[in-house]
Design a protein around this nucleic acid. Structure first.
Lengths: 219, 219, 219, 219
DNA sequence: TATGAATGAGAGTTCATTCAT
DNA sequence: CATGAATGAACTCTCATTCAT
């Protein structure tokens, strides 16, 4: 009896695991196709076929095609924010931590998840209102994360920002800057990354310095 | 005979003018629809209807739907590069001219052509390979324009850039930065524009200063 | 052993009762959904969900979706024929009993089972051949019930009908008449029911009188 | 020149006529299929195929499948109301004209347009809200037409109706009665029509007589 | 040049039914 | 008995493009 129960439980666990796996397989199939052919040219058939399931099964796991893209954006958001959040926390309040987060994005996230970045920067743009909303929400969250980091920098380094908009401006600039840079250099060609990265960080450092009153003495 | 010819010539002129007008009407109808509904959701019938012509006529003026978007991107490119080019030429080589160009983009182009900017930044993204190509070419030209301006600054101010990539990095950053900033602040809401604009220019100025060796003494 | 058997028997009874309950829950869920959304727009998943069972379980109790509708029609038939049969029997052969049956349909069945009536009059119409068959069979039975009542009236009141078709015509008319009346007045709005009911019965009475030879003295 | 113009005009007329013909072909194809297989089992492909046009062309003439059914109902309405209206007008106000209209429906409309009647009575029932609306509207118009005829009878014969609802009740009954009768006898079998028709009219005559105060002296 | 009816491949989505657990 | 994930055929509808007039 006990073994029976255990076996059942094991079977249930396995089924649950399989379900989660299927979900992930569909998502990564979609990611691959969206990158290769674009969102519009990718059909549900394509996704089903390379996931080795029936078309209808896709609709068991996702509400519709749009929903797949939105979940993908959420995934990317989780990856990005976790990576940046960790780095912000390491040297909380210091400008170094801030620049390190940029380094992480540039050297690690973009290298490890180029497809995800491509989805976020290109394939999810201008599709449907709901996808646009998900994209915007993610960017707004990123901007807020960066604004929080900038506020901590203010307190830690005992500085002031030039205007009440400066924090939002810096955060927005940094996000746009990384968006373009990652797209321009990583997607088109992957050379001189080290040098580019350092230049970008120098640019940001210079930009931030020029929008504060006070000095960023490193501790 | 002569009078006939003259009459024909007048008629021909009128026809030519009408032809040009139709072309422009189609383009501006398309612009409007692409902004409101996006490229994919806009149909040729939509464009024909609001241009008050037949569907078939659209195909006399444009090869296909894709071609309309591409011509639109070319238009936007002409507007943007003319505005920036003029400004670069005014104070050629000086950092002020460089920053002024940014000011012009921010205060004039974005205000005057918000729909065009939206097309370039969002609706033309991730559609077809040829559209993507046109978009990329425009951005590359803008980046090159800026790189040229930066080279002139180098000569004029007698400075050096930190690395051989710096010029390209700065140009790319500036384009991406304006892309995000214009989208984030101008499209979403139009408040505090003056303050934001100055912060952005300060940021750029700081960023550039941090990527050069030498001083930007205003001659 | 015996106790075991008894326990089993109790359990079996309970299971049997539960089974019957499930069957009824499914039927009433289907009834509700068919009325609200129509037969075609109602899915098995809808029915399963509001019955709080799994989709597969529905197929244990019913052969298929069609079967659910057919059982529903049988149910409605049972309700209707029981109510009318009782009334016919009470004053067997008298025209009063005949009119009373109409009264019962109008004042009691329609009030108590508006959803069932809606199913019979609208939602079961024009769906599948088998459903149509079940519907027709029910109506034919009703017509036959009424024809039998009319025959008894003939014998009891010692009258003749004008033609050999008259009985069938009256029966058919009465069914169609109630169908439309119930739909028009009870489903759309429930006002003036008393007055309408009396008018309807007067109409039927006048109609019947005009199709017989002899007098309907209430002896 | 003139001949040219005339030829163009002729061509234009022909094209317009062809367009109207296509519209009618689609409508009659749909009518046929809806009767044979029912609304749900009929596909747009079916209709397109037997109209010898492409699927897309159907959507040039009709908004969607629902729209085809609704236009069909409108057609039926026009046929019915024209036939009845003519008859009502012939002997306006007399009970004979009223009964004659019934005769026309029974002996002519049902014989000439059995498929249309089947659509109205069965295939259009319980499909979509908009179809149901069109159906209801038609029946309501018919009921109103009959009510108007009954009012004229009141004035002409100088009679009163038993209650304020009587007119609406009679009209509703008559519509429902013909609905069922036509369906029961014409669709199932077409025998004894003459006898049935007379019985039905006698029934109606008796019913009406029993809901009025005064005498229906034939002028 | 201009027209607009016609095309038809192809898309997303639904859902009754099955069956291994 | 009950479950619910999986199926896949079938449907409606779209729309860029063509071409006879």
């Amino acid at each position: 009896m006990e073994t029976d129960k255990k076996e059942l439980s094991v079977a249930a666990k396995r089924r649950l695991k399989e379900k989660q796996q299927r979900y992930n397989i569909i998502l990564s199939s979609a990611l691959k196709h969206f990158c290769e052919k674009g969102y519009n040219k990718t059909t549900i058939q394509d996704i089903a076929q390379s996931s080795e399931i029936a078309v209808g099964t896709v609709y068991f796991y996702f509400k519709n095609k749009e929903d797949i893209m939105i979940q993908l954006i959420h995934d990317i958001g989780r990856i990005l924010r976790r990576a940046l959040g960790e780095e912000f926390r390491k040297k909380s309040g210091s400008i170094e931590g801030f620049l390190n987060a940029g380094r992480i994005f540039f050297y690690e996230v973009c290298q490890k998840y180029p497809d995800h970045i491509l989805i976020l920067m290109r394939e999810s743009v201008g599709q449907t209102p709901d996808i646009e909303k998900a994209r915007q929400e993610l960017f707004n969250k990123l901007i807020k994360d960066i604004m929080n980091a900038l506020i901590k920098i203010k307190d830690h380094h005992k500085i002031q920002y030039k205007s009440k908009m400066s924090i939002e401006v810096i955060a927005t600039i940094v996000v746009g800057l990384f968006e373009k840079i990652s797209y321009h250099f990583l997607i088109n060609n992957g050379t001189h990354i080290k040098q580019i990265g350092e230049d970008v960080l120098d640019f940001i450092y210079g930009g931030v310095k020029n929008l504060i009153i006070g000095k960023l003495n490193d501790n």
